[in-house]
Computed example of a mutant assay.
Amino acid sequence: MIVPVLVALLVLVGMSAFHIRVEEQHDIDAIYDVTEAAFAGIEQSDGTEKDLVDKLRAAKALSLSLIAEAGGEVIGHIAASEVLIGGGAQGWFGIGPVSVRPDRQQQGVGIALMGSALDQLRAEGAGGAVLLGDPGYYRRFGFEVVPGLVYPNAPAEYFMALCLNSPEFPQGVVEYHSAFGG
């Protein structure tokens, strides 16, 4: 389990400022609302993202939970939880969901959240991270499709990985926590 470290990052984008920090108890409802809004109407969404973070938290499987905050409001969120690869733990984490309030998208919030999450996972010694998402977006962070690293519940071109502290990619089937329903 990743032990939360104090994360505070002030980001200035144009005239809009926000900061990144670890979630606190009073953020839980806002995280739910931001996630629900971020995934509403998304064709690839199955509608479960809004409940996922709560399920991971309840199962004590939420390894990382960061929010972006502006003017006292939660405008974005990113989560990570440990994954099993080839049936065992290898110090790798699944990132997701990543949520940004629709009126704050395209303003650098998601980029800042991802950068902060990857920095924290790297600092805590994580071997690497996997995610399911748009290759055009996530390649900018170094994520890539890795032959032999398989998530059978999705198209292969959308399942990507990034080595953080591991010298090489593991091989095998990736299993997310049962909260993901897969």
Rank of each mutant, 00 (worst) to 15 (best):
Glu175Pro: 00
Gln106Asn: 15
Pro155Tyr: 00
Ala179Phe: 14
Gly76Lys: 15
Leu10Thr: 03
His26Pro: 08
Gly72Lys: 03
Ser166Asp: 04
Gln25Arg: 13
Ser116Glu: 01
Ser116His: 01
Val3Thr: 06
Leu84Ala: 14
Asp54Val: 14
Ala80Tyr: 06
Met160Gln: 12
Asp119Ser: 14
Ala79Cys: 08
Leu118Gln: 04
Leu162Gly: 05
Val98Ala: 01
Ala117Glu: 06
Thr35Glu: 05
Arg122Ile: 02
Ile75Trp: 06
Ile28Ser: 08
Gln44Pro: 04
Phe18Gln: 04
Leu118Ile: 11
Ser16Ala: 12
Met114Arg: 06
Gly76Tyr: 14
Leu52Asp: 05
Ala40Trp: 05
His19Phe: 08
Gly181Tyr: 00
Asp54Glu: 14
Val150Ala: 09
Val130Gly: 02
Ala40Arg: 10
Ala79Arg: 14
Val109Pro: 02
Glu49Gln: 10
Val150Trp: 01
Ile28Trp: 10
Ala154Asp: 02
Leu64Trp: 06
Met1Val: 14
Glu69Arg: 05
Gln44Asn: 12
Gly71Thr: 03
Gly148Cys: 01
Gly41Gln: 11
Glu73Gly: 01
Ala17Glu: 05
Val174Thr: 03
His77Ala: 00
Leu64Met: 06
Ala80Arg: 04
Gly72Tyr: 02
Arg104Asn: 13
Gly148Glu: 01
Leu6Tyr: 13
Ala61Tyr: 00
Gln44Ala: 14
Gly181Trp: 00
Val173Lys: 05
Gln44Cys: 06
Gly110Tyr: 07
Ser65Gln: 05
Gln107Ser: 15
Tyr32Phe: 15
Phe93Arg: 07
Gly125Ile: 09
Ser116Pro: 00
Leu84Lys: 14
Ser65Glu: 03
Glu23Cys: 14
Leu9Trp: 04
Val100Ile: 13
Ile2Gln: 01
Gln90Asn: 11
Glu24Cys: 13
Arg21Glu: 04
Gly91Thr: 06
Glu49Ile: 09
Tyr176Arg: 11
Leu162His: 03
Gln107Gly: 12
Leu64Tyr: 03
Pro135Ser: 13
Ser166Val: 06
Arg139Trp: 01
Ala30Val: 08
Val109Ser: 02
Gly142Cys: 03
Val11Thr: 07
Met15Glu: 12
Gly14Asn: 02
Asp119Trp: 09
Ala59Lys: 15
Pro155Gln: 00
Ile78His: 04
Ser63Cys: 09
Pro147Ser: 15
Leu6His: 15
Ile42Gln: 11
Gly142Gln: 04
His26Leu: 12
Met114Pro: 01
Gln25Lys: 12
Met1His: 12
Val146Ser: 08
Ile31Phe: 10
